[in-house]
């Protein structure tokens, strides 16, 4: 599976190969943790990007809205093959999961009200909640550095979940306050 491609950026990759590699990652990255699969596929196996670039692209993906998996597909696809690369990589990444979830909707329509299905689905909902909280704790460990950061977290969560503030307002107000709090101030402005 591994092409003897040189490590020099950016390697020449056909659109078909780009689609296939992202399709395989989109089909095999079970149970979330897509970032790990992306690194294996892009950095280790195909050497399409090096580790420094990967971390850089990941930090863009995490800062901007959108999911990490699709944002990474867009950025890597663009880097390797421009606009078409973006489209092909994103389609490959999304197609397997989308097909499965469309199938799940039809299956749910047929058997979703069955008490056995419901018992199963209530069970996985509880399990998924455990996963969400872990993802949150791991994300928090990376970005929360001071007491103020924790206050921003609690204020945002309380506003949305406690007082029913709409997410965009919370995002804009808390975002501006938090960015201003971390504003650059060690040097005089240019």
């Amino acid at each position: 599976m591994s092409d003897p491609a040189p490590t020099a950026p950016p390697p020449t990759v056909s659109l078909a190969r780009l689609f296939w590699v992202f399709f395989v990652m989109g089909a095999t990255s079970l149970g979330g943790g897509v970032v790990g699969y992306l690194r294996t596929g892009l950095v280790v196996r195909n050497r399409w990007v090096d580790d420094v670039t990967f971390v850089e692209l990941l930090s863009i993906s995490q800062t901007l809205p959108g999911l990490n998996a699709t944002n990474m597909s867009i950025l890597v696809g663009d880097r390797l093959r421009g606009g078409w690369g973006t489209i092909v990589a994103t389609l490959g990444m999304c197609l397997p999961g989308a097909t499965l979830m469309i199938g799940a909707a039809y299956a749910y329509g047929i058997g979703g009200d069955d008490p056995w299905s419901k018992a199963f689905l209530h069970g996985i909902a509880a399990g998924a909640l455990g996963l969400i909280v872990v993802v949150m704790v791991q994300l928090g460990a990376k970005v929360l550095k001071s007491l103020a950061d924790y206050l921003f977290v609690l204020a945002t969560a309380a506003a949305v979940a406690g007082f029913g503030v709409q997410v965009p307002y919370a995002l804009i107000v808390a975002g501006i306050v938090a960015i201003w709090w971390h504003r650059p101030r060690d040097r005089t402005p240019k």
Binding site: Q62, V153, V160, A170
Partner: peptide
């Protein structure tokens, strides 16, 4: 110069939004 501020600031707000989502879930 504002890039680290945006990354750190939005980071804590996004953790807050995930927490709100988890509470509702």
């Amino acid at each position: 110069r504002w890039r680290p501020a945006i990354q750190t600031g939005l980071g804590s707000v996004s953790v807050g939004l995930v927490l709100a989502g988890a509470v509702i879930m």
